[in-house]
Design a protein around this nucleic acid. Structure first.
Lengths: 203, 203
DNA sequence: AGTGTAATTGACCGGCCGGCCAGTTAGTTG
DNA sequence: CAACTAACTGGCCGGCCGGTCAATTACACT
């Protein structure tokens, strides 16, 4: 009936990548076979080789398609020119958190890629961290943040914690007393900005 | 020469588990073959089946041997009877951090197990989180910590951040400006306890 | 209509996978 | 020493792995 699919390499490529993406996100690189990807995407195994050169090539393509927009969005957000005060950093953290919340698959793909020792992410990651650290350092210089903390460490804390929250969500969502994404984020921001110790003044 | 190894099932078992541990830590479950484990441990593939029933059985045994002591140590530390003040919590965090620092392989094995969706950890994890949350709640009740934060979230932050620090160490150790384990831990504790915002009083 | 190009197919390859099994060997018990 | 058990071995199995290739098929250009 529907009379689908005249030949369309672009459509085929994305069919394959969609299927591969889902499977890689779920089980990582090694546990997934190209036969399985072919089955799920309704395409022949050979065709995957034709379009991506092999399993490794497909893996790289999937990662690039998934991480590219992520990096661009983050980079753009971090290069906005405003002088960063505390509120802006908080907003940036919220944006990052919400991006991961809305793209949970990306976080998982990150986890696999990192464990696998993927190096292609490293350069982009380092760039983002550098940008973020500069922002924090600016905020420190302006007196908006305490300046006795390594700015890179601040960024690392944000990234690590948010990433881990979504990567391991399935794992700790059953922990007793744990709250929603929003509640966790709010608590995190309170603690990180103001500290766990009670403040003796109210200002 | 050395005339090694009269038959000793216990020794053999741990030889196998040692090799498997290293390989699983490095590359996860699927990317490692039992042939490889056999080669590295100097035994026959069949012998692995004899002792562990199969690859899956070996994986479970390796995880159990690695995680068991971890859970026991943490549980013991968390059930110490002292009334937890801020200093005690800090010390507990330091102990946890240093445990992971001294057992980096365990952190990585955790990562693989979690991504794989391992359920056996979940119960133990939940127990530890519950214990930790109780300690935090006690400290909150005594006024040592601010009480407008979900205690479970506090524990989750500690665990997630420390875990991620060591799981992804290889990944972010090249980030520009990042410090040593010790420096990161100190910065984290400063931020976590006192907050990123400058405190207006010095007490 | 003819020709070139690229998408697409199915059959096939060598190789490794995890698992199994029938033996052999060493230590233990009586 | 005989008998038993369990550690240990080598070889084999069916199956899936990733990859290749020669052949078709659909489309674009002329």
């Amino acid at each position: 009936m529907t009379e689908v699919a005249t030949r369309d390499s672009e459509r085929t490529r994305s069919q394959i990548m969609d299927a591969a993406h889902d499977l890689f996100v779920e089980r990582g690189f090694d546990a997934v076979s190209i036969r399985e990807i072919a089955r799920l995407s309704g395409v022949t195994k050979s065709l995957i080789h034709h379009h991506f050169g092999g399993k490794e090539g497909l893996w790289e393509a999937v990662k690039e398609r998934a991480f590219g927009p992520y990096y661009e969005q983050q980079r753009d957000e971090l290069t906005e020119a405003e002088q960063p005060g505390a509120e802006l950093l908080i907003q940036g953290a919220r944006n990052y958190f919400e991006f991961l919340r809305d793209n949970p698959k990306v976080a998982r793909l990150f986890a696999w890629a990192h464990l696998e020792g993927d190096t292609s992410c490293s350069q982009m990651d380092a760039d983002l961290v550098r940008l973020g650290s500069q922002r924090v350092a600016q905020a420190q210089a302006s007196g908006a943040l305490r300046d006795d903390i390594n700015p890179t460490h601040v960024v690392t804390m944000f990234i690590s914690l948010f990433t881990q929250w979504f990567e391991a969500k399935q794992h700790h969502q059953n922990w007793p007393g744990i709250g929603s994404d929003q509640e966790f984020l709010d608590d995190f921001l309170k603690v990180f900005m103001e500290g766990l110790l009670p403040r003796s003044n109210s200002s």
